[in-house]
Design a protein around this nucleic acid. Sequence first.
DNA 1: ATCATCCATCGGTAATAACCGATAGGTGTG
DNA 2: CACACCTATCGGTTATTACCGATGGATGAT
Lengths: 109, 109
Amino acid sequence: MMTDEALSALAALAHPTRLAAFRLLVRHEPDGLTTGELVEHSGLTQSTFSTHLAVLAKAGLVRSEKQGRNQIQRAEIGALSALMLFLAKDCCGGRAELCEPLLAELTCC
Amino acid sequence: MMTDEALSALAALAHPTRLAAFRLLVRHEPDGLTTGELVEHSGLTQSTFSTHLAVLAKAGLVRSEKQGRNQIQRAEIGALSALMLFLAKDCCGGRAELCEPLLAELTCC
DNA sequence: ATCATCCATCGGTAATAACCGATAGGTGTG
DNA sequence: CACACCTATCGGTTATTACCGATGGATGAT
């Protein structure tokens, strides 16, 4: 993952509405949710939420698929993994000792 | 890590200058760098960079320590780990199979 | 004591992002 | 074909953020 991709992923998640939507989508993998359901959860206007969704999509964190007249949204777990790997390499690159506690916590969950 | 903390950490890292500074600090653990050195790397004004540094500090990603008339900045690896754990729990919570590839990559680095 | 250095904060401007209502393009239904 | 529904995009306003120069407090050197 390039720095620019990481930046847009970070920016996409750095918003309450988008982070909540993304986490909700992760919990609904692999079925996904329709845009309308996400809008309801967000409490925002359909148009406002749509732009948030576009940010997530542009960052590669969410992919959408048309199903009838609904749009199914799904979390792109691979993008999340890539982002975490990007962050992890900052400390693990050459200094694995710094990441050891992190790995210990991750493997237990 | 609470959602608000994760949000401020994400927002702090979602900026080219701040992400670069943070990564640089991680690479210079545990010695740290002075604010002046970071300013040089950033290519920005001292005042502008100082506000960026404040964002990182407020998010708990950087802690500073006074040393003479210099201010030594250090990356807070624990905060990075906490953020990654926060993100990881989204997919690992109840569905460890999604995080398996991530863990495989992490343990190898 | 004086002076230079380092850095945080203030004031102000310009750019960016968030939000809404309204519109319009598709898609299924009657 | 007409109609209702779902969703993306446009136009415009407001709020937030980024950036700079300038100021001032603190520290070390002369």
